[in-house]
Design a protein around this nucleic acid. Structure first.
Length: 821
RNA sequence: GCCGGGAUGGCGGAACUGGUAGACGCAGGGGACUUAAAAUCCCCCGGUGGUGACACUGUGCCGGUUCGACUCCGGCUCUCGGUACCA
C-alpha cells in the first residue's frame, strides 16, 4: 500500500493515457452489445481559443452523467466536436492577418488539449468540426432537398441588417433592436435572401412542447412565447370612397361591435399613401420608424398617433370609423393594422382617451354593472349594444360574429403566429457556402448532389468590409449545371445555427461518408437522452434543432416513429459561473483560468469543486477557498485508504461495526438517489463526504470491522469515479480493485444492512420535540407510551394534562396531543 | 404587463411521498502539534436567556388546513431571469 502523498499531476496523466489506450470511453456500435444505450450530450463549444469556466462546468456535468450511466451498465455515447464556423474567426483573421481557417484549427488543437486534461470521457473517434467539408457537405445536400420540397426559398424581403457584422440577421438574432453579437442597432434593408419554412412546422413545434416533460418549464415557456400562436379572426373593413380594404387580425372578434376607430402601423401602405400629400403625417411616420428600433423599453413608450383623414366602413353596421396611424401597431405582426375597441382593450382605451375618440361598450359582466368611463373592461362577458348578437356570451359571440363575417365574405377564422420563417443566408465568408448557382438562363439552380460539397476556399483573407468570397473568382465563376453556360455561385453562406441544428444527430453517424445519417446508427442512439448546456440557447439553438430534426425526418433520414420527433429527451440548463456575483467574462476581466486551476490542484479538484459548489441549474459563485476545500477532501480520502486492512488495538465493538455498515449502505442509497434526482451532484458529494467522515471516525478491532471498512472505502471510491475519475482509478489501484474504478459496477444497496435492531424514536408533545427514546423499530404505540411514562424528562410534560390523541409514525416519531386536565 | 424561478445561519446550500430544520462545505472562534508558520487533527458555531442538563424562538410576510408545515392551500412583499405594446 502506497504511503506517498496524493499527486494529481502524475496520476492524471497516467490514467488519461490508460483510458485512451484501452478505449473505455468509446460508444460501442457493435450489435453484440446488448446493453441499453444512453446518449449524453453537452452543447459543443465554439473554438474561441481557450476553455473558460463555463465550459468546464458544462463538460464536468456531462462527464459525470456519462460516467455514471456507464457504471450503471449503459452503453454510453458521449461525443464532442466543434461549432467551428462563425464571425469571431473572421474578426480574429482581420486582427492577426491570417485566414480564419488557420485560427480556427489552431484553437481546436489548443482546446481539445485542454478538454483532455480535464479527463473527460469523450468518444474522440466521433469528433466533428462543422467547418470541414465532410460535415457541411450534408448540410448543403439537405438544403437542396429542402429546395426541392419547397421548404427553402429565396425572397426579396425587408430584413435586419447589422453594419459592423456586415450581414443580415434572423429575427431571433435581434434582441431589443440590436444585434445579438455586437449590440449595434439593426436597421431594415430590402434584400433577396434565403429562408427556410419553419412556419410550416409552427403547430407541430408548439404542440410537441407538451412531450418535453424532461425540459425545464422555463425553456418550454420561452419557446411557446416565441412561436406565439393566437387564434381569432381576420376582418376586412372597406376603405371609404375606395375599393381597397383594410384587413385586420383580432383575437377578440366578440368586440367587433365596439370598434370606434382603426389603427395602422407607420409602415402600412394606407398610411404611406395618406402621407404623400401630408408633410405633417409624413414626418410622424418618419419619427415612428426611428423610434421603433431604438427604443429599448417599448412597453413604456408613449402612445402616439395621428389621423390619416381616411375612414373605414364597419363591416356589420356600415358606420364610418376614422383610421389612425399609431406607433404601437407593428407592421411585422398580423396585417400591420388593428381594429380598436377602447371599451375593452387597455391600450386602445388609453389611446382613445388621449385623442378624444369614441368609446363604445359592447360587453358587460353578469351583474351588468360594468363602467367603462374610468377604465377598459377586458374580461369576457355578455354582449350588449351589439344588435343581433346581444345576450351572447363572449365565447359564443366570437363564433357567431366570425360566422357572420364568413357568410358575408368580410372575414374568416384565422390563426396567427409570431414565428417567422428562418432567414438562413449571411453575407459572411467563414461559413457553409449555400449550394446554389445563379444562371442567366436558368435562374437559381441547386448544385446537384454529384457536385457536392461546394468547398469553401480556406485561404482567403477577410479585410473587414464585404465577404472576400464574392471577390474570389475561382469560387464564383462556374458553369450552370442545367444548361452548361457560364454562371456564378451564390456567395452567401449559411447562418452558423444551421450547423448546430443537426450535429447531435450527426454524432450517431459521425464517420459515415455516404449519407448525412446512417439510419441504423441513428435509430440506435437518437434521441439524445440528456442534453446539457446554457439557458442562453433556450430559443435560438433549441428551437432550430427541434425544427431541423423534423426536417431530417421528413426527407426520410430516419423513422420518426422509432426515433421520436424530439431530438433532446431531457434538458439540463446549467447556471452561470460567477465571480464576485457577476458572470465571468473576458471583457469584464473577472475570469479564472481553468488551466491555472488544473495546474495547481489537478483536474479532479477542479471537477469536484464545480460539481459541489452549487446545484447544476443554479449559478455557481467561484471561490478559491472552496477549491481548497475540495482538494482537502480528496486528500482526506487519500489518507483514509491507509485504514483499509488495518486492525487497531482495542476491544471489538460489534454494534459499532454494524452501525458503520448501515451508514455505508444508507449513503450508497443517498448518493444514488441524488444522482437520479436531476443529477444533484452537490448533494451526492455531501453524502460521500459524510461517508468518508464516518469511515474515518471508525477503527477496526477485528476482522469483521476490517472487512466493513474495506466495503465502505470501496463503495466510496466507486461512487467518486464519475466525478473524480483519475483519483478514483488511482485509489482503486491502491486498493487492488479487480476492475479500473471508472469501469466498475455502481454499488448496490444491501437492504439487509439497513435493518436496525433499535432506533431513536423522537417523542413530540403537541408537535414539539421533547426527547427521544430507544426502541425497536416495530415498537407498538402502547409500548412506546409505557417507555415515555417511565422517562422522566419526557413524562414531566404530560403531567397535569389529559392525553387526547397519540400518533405513531413508524420508525420516526411519536406525537402526543394533550389538553389541560 | 405577462411567463418562469427564487427567498432557509456570516456565505454556498441540505431536508425522502408533510414527520427531529440547518446535512455537507466555506468563513469564523477555541484548542492540540510546531522554536515558529504552513499543513494536519480535535471541539464550538441561527437568535435570546441560563454556569448547566435545558427553555423560548426561528425557514420573506399575513392567514388557513393538519396531531404535526421549509414542504400543502389562499392572499401578499421582495428578488432574479425571460419576454411579445402580439391586436
Amino acid at each position: 500500500m502506497s504511503e506517498e502523498l496524493y499527486n494529481p499531476q502524475s496520476i492524471e496523466q497516467k490514467w488519461q493515457k490508460l483510458w485512451q489506450e484501452s478505449g473505455v470511453d468509446a460508444a460501442n456500435e457493435g450489435e453484440g452489445d446488448k446493453r441499453e444505450t444512453y446518449y449524453c450530450l453537452e452543447m459543443f463549444p465554439y473554438p474561441s481559443g481557450n476553455l473558460h469556466m463555463g465550459h468546464v462546468r458544462n463538460y464536468c456535468l456531462g462527464d459525470a452523467v456519462a460516467r455514471y450511466k456507464r457504471m450503471q451498465g449503459f452503453n454510453v455515447l458521449h461525443p464532442i466536436g466543434w461549432d467551428a464556423f462563425g464571425l469571431p474567426a473572421e474578426n480574429a483573421a482581420i486582427k492577426h492577418g491570417r485566414p480564419p481557417a488557420e485560427w480556427t484549427y489552431a484553437n481546436i488543437e489548443q482546446m481539445s488539449g485542454q478538454l483532455k486534461r480535464l479527463g473527460l470521457s469523450y468518444d474522440w473517434s466521433r469528433e466533428i468540426a462543422t467547418c470541414k467539408p465532410e460535415y457541411y457537405r450534408w448540410e448543403q445536400w439537405m438544403f437542396t432537398k429542402l429546395m426541392e420540397k419547397g421548404l427553402a426559398y429565396r425572397k426579396e424581403a425587408e430584413v435586419n441588417w447589422c453594419d459592423p457584422c456586415h450581414t443580415v440577421l434572423a429575427n431571433e438574432q435581434v434582441e431589443d433592436g440590436v444585434c445579438w453579437r455586437c449590440d449595434t442597432p439593426v436597421h431594415k434593408k430590402n434584400l433577396a435572401q434565403w429562408f427556410i419554412k419553419i412556419t410550416d412546422y409552427a403547430d407541430e413545434l408548439l404542440n410537441d412542447l407538451e412531450q418535453l416533460s424532461g425540459w425545464p418549464d422555463k425553456v418550454v415557456g420561452m419557446q411557446r412565447n416565441w412561436i406565439g400562436k393566437s387564434s381569432g379572426a381576420e376582418v376586412s373593413f372597406q376603405v371609404e370612397g375606395s375599393d381597397e380594404t383594410l384587413d385586420i387580425f383580432t383575437t377578440r372578434p366578440d368586440t367587433l361591435m365596439g370598434v370606434t376607430y382603426m389603427a395602422v402601423a407607420a409602415g402600412h401602405p394606407l398610411a404611406i399613401k395618406a402621407a404623400e400629400h401630408n408633410p405633417e403625417l409624413s414626418a410622424f411616420l418618419e419619427e415612428c420608424s426611428v423610434i421603433s428600433t431604438k427604443e429599448a423599453d417599448v412597453a413604456t413608450m408613449e402612445k402616439k398617433g395621428m389621423s390619416l383623414g381616411v375612414n373605414a366602413i364597419h363591416p356589420v353596421t356600415g358606420e364610418a370609423v376614422p383610421v389612425w396611424v399609431a406607433n404601437f401597431v407593428l407592421m411585422s405582426y398580423g396585417t400591420g393594422a388593428v381594429m380598436s375597441v377602447p371599451a375593452h382593450d387597455e391600450r386602445d382605451y388609453d389611446f382613445a382617451k388621449k385623442y378624444d375618440l369614441n368609446i363604445k361598450q359592447v360587453i358587460t359582466n353578469a351583474a351588468g354593472d360594468v363602467d367603462v368611463s374610468e377604465a377598459a373592461f377586458t374580461d369576457a362577458g355578455v354582449m350588449i349594444n351589439s344588435g343581433e348578437f346581444d345576450g351572447l356570451k363572449s365565447n359564443k359571440a366570437k363564433k357567431a360574429i366570425t360566422y357572420w363575417l364568413n357568410t358575408h365574405e368580410k372575414g374568416e377564422e384565422r390563426t396567427q403566429f409570431r414565428l417567422r420563417d428562418w432567414l438562413v443566408s449571411r453575407q459572411r465568408y467563414w461559413g457553409t457556402p449555400i449550394p446554389v448557382i445563379h444562371c442567366e438562363n436558368c435562374g437559381t439552380v441547386a448544385v446537384p448532389e454529384s457536385d457536392l460539397p461546394v468547398v469553401l476556399p480556406e485561404h482567403l483573407q477577410p479585410t473587414g468590409g464585404a465577404s472576400p468570397l464574392a471577390d474570389c473568382e475561382e469560387f464564383v465563376n462556374t458553369t450552370c449545371p442545367t444548361c452548361g453556360k457560364d454562371a456564378k455561385r451564390e456567395t452567401d453562406t449559411f447562418d452558423t445555427f444551421m450547423e448546430s441544428s443537426w450535429y447531435m444527430n450527426r454524432y450517431t453517424s459521425a464517420n459515415c461518408n455516404t449519407a448525412m445519417l446512417d439510419a441504423k446508427s441513428m435509430a440506435k442512439w437518437a434521441p439524445v437522452d440528456q442534453y446539457i448546456g446554457g439557458v442562453e440557447h433556450a430559443v435560438l439553438h433549441l428551437l432550430y434543432a427541434r425544427f431541423y430534426h423534423r426536417l431530417m425526418r421528413d426527407v426520410g433520414l430516419f423513422d420518426g416513429e422509432k426515433v421520436g420527433c424530439e431530438p433532446f429527451k431531457n434538458l439540463l440548463t446549467q447556471g452561470m459561473v460567477l465571480l464576485d456575483g457577476t458572470k465571468m467574462s473576458k471583457s469584464k476581466g473577472n475570469t479564472v483560468d481553468p488551466v491555472t486551476i488544473i495546474e495547481k490542484y489537478g483536474a479532479d479538484t477542479a471537477r469536484l469543486f464545480t460539481l459541489f459548489a452549487a446545484p447544476p441549474e443554479r449559478d455557481l459563485e467561484w471561490s478559491d477557498k472552496g477549491v481548497e476545500g475540495a482538494s482537502r477532501f480528496l486528500n482526506r480520502v487519500w489518507v483514509l485508504l491507509d485504514k483499509v486492512g488495518k486492525i487497531y488495538p482495542g476491544q471489538a465493538d460489534a454494534k459499532a461495526t454494524k452501525t458503520l455498515r448501515r451508514t455505508i449502505h444508507t449513503h450508497i442509497q443517498r448518493v444514488t438517489h441524488a444522482f437520479e434526482q436531476g443529477f444533484a451532484f452537490n448533494v451526492a458529494i455531501a453524502a460521500m463526504m459524510e461517508l468518508s467522515n464516518a469511515l474515518n471516525a471508525f477503527e477496526a478491532h477485528d476482522d469483521e470491522g476490517k472487512a466493513v471498512v474495506e466495503e465502505g472505502v470501496t463503495a466510496l471510491i466507486t461512487m467518486l469515479a464519475p466525478l473524480v475519475p483519475h483519483f478514483a482509478c488511482e485509489c482503486g489501484e491502491r486498493l487492488g480493485f479487480a476492475t479500473v474504478a471508472v469501469m466498475a459496477t455502481w454499488p448496490e444497496v444491501d437492504e439487509s444492512a439497513l435493518v436496525q435492531d433499535e432506533i431513536n424514536l423522537v417523542v413530540q408533545i403537541q408537535g414539539k420535540k421533547r426527547g427521544e427514546i430507544v426502541v425497536s423499530p416495530n415498537v407498538s404505540q402502547d409500548e412506546a407510551m409505557d417507555i415515555v411514562r417511565n422517562t422522566e424528562s419526557i413524562n414531566k410534560w404530560l403531567e397535569g394534562n389529559q392525553i387526547v390523541k397519540v400518533i405513531l409514525v413508524k420508525g420516526r416519531l411519536l406525537n402526543i396531543v394533550v389538553k389541560p386536565a
